[in-house]
Design a binder for these strands. Structure first.
Lengths: 239, 239
DNA sequence: ACCGATTTGTTCGTATGTATA
DNA sequence: ATATACATACGAACAAATCGG
């Protein structure tokens, strides 16, 4: 199986074997590799040697390693383009993926200072808050909260429940088109609740985008905070 | 000091006190707050009560809590705008911060498949790899690696050592202007080395941007991978 | 809410072969 | 030939996260 003391380091040979096992499909996307200790038994080497090979595989982008769970073959990542016109479902269908949008909550509430500042209204004014989760091919990839000024869209909660889409809901209120004013992107660790909603371990970071959408005359119509599971999503900035 | 059983929860009172202590400057940016247990003694409450107040402060964005180290007053975030024309030092000086660029390594090497694909050359062709660290106000905020095709810029290593700037180096080779073709953004945990270079704990995520710069006629001149310390940097996408 | 089994992450120490000065 | 540095490999122990009962 392995040749010792003949020029090629053991971890390199193991790396090569696992690499071809993955690209040949012996381990499919998302599948878990055997644990480090069982691999070390199988190859007859120390666990450190296995870990060296796995860490290079991770660097290759072929696997992702999760503490306490195991090593998994990476699924193809989802590209999430950010441009002046960003629409969730359009983005995904363009990649031949079946998008899903799960409405978690739609309520009227009072704007806190951050939301008010973004929407250009006074703190305490009533806004509609819609929390939803996004899926692609059945996998949870985003968890987002959007705020709309109620003064512009009275009764939005009911309309949104019917339309199930931001674009169509705004259309119903006469907003034919809207575009992104700015997008802020940060990375951080998720809270327990956010990790649960994204179906991901708490130890994996999330990408967070904060964006403001304005209508054709420049009036803010939506302030959105969207969390992405960083293991499966990368953001693409398009000029 | 605190009023018990009079309508306002203890943790809210503590939250309010700490908040004003921070905004009044009693605790400066980056400074460590007293430990949870010493705060609980000081206020005469249980540690759980302190934790509640701290966790809300963290949600406010006023402090950041690091496991095993303590709670720290958040420094003002650095905005890193990404647009068609993105220049490191311009970005920072516009925010009245003193930028610093530390050259870590400049060598010629062979392009791996990923680099070759981005630069539109063959794998194995010689490229110049420049690794450097970026600072703002003396704080390490970025750790980046840039690749340039050697065929376009022979002797770049020497020139860069003299110029200490990508823009000026490319100018020397006759590239008057360049712009971003695309930018990919991901979030992940740093390796031990990356965390060390960014002077940050390994438990904090990093923002990674991968970008390709092209000259006026569309020829790729630079492929860059830049890691940002997510605690201090947020990326701003400008249309 | 807690426990135990499993799994990855980290840090010691030790030993060996290889390339370099 | 000797010394030094470096990569490789093994062993043991413990820490931290996950998962099921």
């Amino acid at each position: 199986m392995l040749t010792r003391g003949k020029g090629v380091a053991l971890w390199r040979q193991i790396h090569e074997k696992l690499k071809s096992a993955i690209s040949s499909g012996r381990f499919g996307p998302g599948e878990r590799l055997p644990s480090e200790s069982s691999l070390s038994k199988e190859f007859g080497v120390n666990r450190h040697t296995i870990r060296r090979a796995l860490s290079v595989l991770e660097g290759d982008g072929l696997i992702r390693v999760e503490r306490g769970r195991g090593s998994f073959v990476r699924e193809p990542v989802i590209h999430y383009p950010v441009s002046r016109r960003t629409r969730f479902s359009e983005n995904l269908s363009r990649q031949r993926r079946t998008p899903g949008n799960i409405l978690l909550q739609a309520v009227d509430t009072e704007a806190d200072p951050q939301v008010a500042e973004a929407l250009g209204i006074e703190p305490g004014e009533v806004v509609t808050r819609i929390t939803s989760a996004g899926e692609a091919d059945g996998r949870r990839i985003s968890y987002s909260t959007a705020f709309f000024p109620r003064s512009l869209f009275p009764g939005m909660v009911r309309v949104y429940r019917e339309m199930q889409s931001v674009t169509r809901t705004l259309e119903h209120f006469g907003v034919a088109d809207y575009s992104r004013k700015r997008t802020r992107i940060i990375a951080r660790m998720p809270s327990a609740e956010e990790a649960r909603e994204l179906r991901q371990p708490k130890s994996r970071p999330v990408l967070v985008t904060e964006s403001v959408n304005v209508d054709e005359s420049g009036v803010p119509v939506e302030f959105g905070v969207c969390l992405f599971a960083s293991d499966w999503v990368q953001i693409l900035v398009e000029p």
